[in-house]
Design a protein around this nucleic acid. Structure first.
Lengths: 225, 225
DNA sequence: GAAAATGTTCAGCCCTTGTTCAGCTAGTAT
DNA sequence: ATACTAGCTGAACAAGGGCTGAACATTTTC
């Protein structure tokens, strides 16, 4: 597993590198945004860990430029605790997950594992799950080869579920991932979107692809299992 | 999961409580150090979140005294950003992790999960016992590879038993771990839930996995032994 | 600027779930 | 043997979470 680590703080950089090497990653290190971008374009990494606060070029910009050039390996971004709002910009730029500093090394590695697993099947940026297909690049969704038109929000919800197949996802989690800042919690928007998704993607409810876990959330059934 | 939340700022206290309850913790709240200590000694919590800056008795002292009395549930301490130095004292006193305010609720819950997992000595988030499997992360339960749908309360009871395999667990203990504060004790809720668990998880009673110890409680059989 | 599509709110219904209860069974003590 | 107690069991019930269709609001499209 080839990993690109982008971190400017020498101490943290060193520690992370050691730990990651110990976990059998081949680690390349970059200490500023420009080097990071160059490296990221030059080599084909399996995964990248990028701190957002970087000299020369901001981490968000690095992510965005990498994605523009078609690099689609998973990216996990690191943000300082007092700047956690940046995560939204980072995720919008194309990062796949984030972690707030300081964190425990175990946390990082479990996130990395999850990311790799999650992104394993989407080399082509399309996720397949039984009759359902989602292309993250073109924002296309189809059921049994027939393309379905989803609105922006519907797509966000479905995408999140497709990226977390088999996991129980709470309504709060969904809300938080769909809206930037906090949102009126006693609203039933999510229920409505779920309803519309079920209607659009499975009108005859022959798949029952979204399970309801009362009091806990929703779960997209894993058809590959 | 029974959680003790110690926080004196009413607004933060309220918000945290809501969020934690939403994540299926049974939350008891204490607003000053003395109450916190009393509660911590009185009940058997699964985890505690303690702010260091408290009226009447300092958070560090609370942690120290709890540990002196042999309470060994994991403790996460909260420190204000401008007093982050205190965290060292807190960790020395016996806390297991810390978080600097302000923080994002997601961060807190992922820390709590990590703590619980780490302190339970379970590397993975799934617990196996003979034909029974419980995944604490996804709240999934299965018997002989077939997943079974448990309600929230049923799950809480089963989870507690699975975390205490082979131990005799009294009905009072179970009640205390499932509900906040006091609960009408001359009720047979637990019996009902046990009944439903036996029915759902072992319909033909071929495993007899929950033993009844008359006058003492229930015991989940250890199939690994 | 009008029409269409999308986002959000609302009210009523449905059904799971939590809880209680009453009658029953099986250990335990007298 | 008898009475007593703890636990078992099925059913009843109420409350709340989730579902749903439609209305209202907002944004996008033309």
């Amino acid at each position: 597993m080839r990993l690109l680590l982008v971190e400017d703080d020498p101490a943290l950089q060193h520690e992370l590198q050691q730990q990651l090497v110990r976990q059998n990653y081949s680690v390349d290190v970059a200490a500023d945004g420009e080097i990071a971008l160059f490296q990221g374009l030059e080599y084909d990494y399996d995964i990248a860990v990028i701190d957002l606060g970087l000299p020369k070029m901001d981490g968000t910009t690095v992510v965005k430029k990498l994605r523009e050039k078609g690099r689609n390996f998973p990216i996990l971004i690191l943000t300082a605790r007092d700047r956690w709002q940046d995560k939204v910009a980072g995720l919008d730029a194309g990062a796949d997950d984030y972690l707030t500093k300081p964190f425990h090394i175990e946390e990082l590695s479990s996130r990395l594992n999850a990311l790799i697993r999650r992104c394993a099947g989407k080399a082509s940026s399309t996720i397949n799950n039984g009759p359902f297909t989602l292309d993250t690049a073109t924002s296309q969704v189809s059921v049994e080869q027939i393309s379905v038109n989803l609105s922006a929000q519907e797509f966000k919800v479905f995408k999140y579920l497709m990226l977390h197949i088999g996991e129980v996802v709470s309504k709060t989690t969904l809300t938080e991932h769909i809206y930037d800042q906090d949102f009126d919690l006693d609203s039933n928007v999510i229920e409505v979107f779920i309803r519309r998704l079920r209607k659009k993607l499975d009108p005859d409810s022959k798949h029952n692809f979204i399970e309801t876990k009362r009091g806990q959330g929703y779960r997209l059934i894993d058809f590959t299992a």
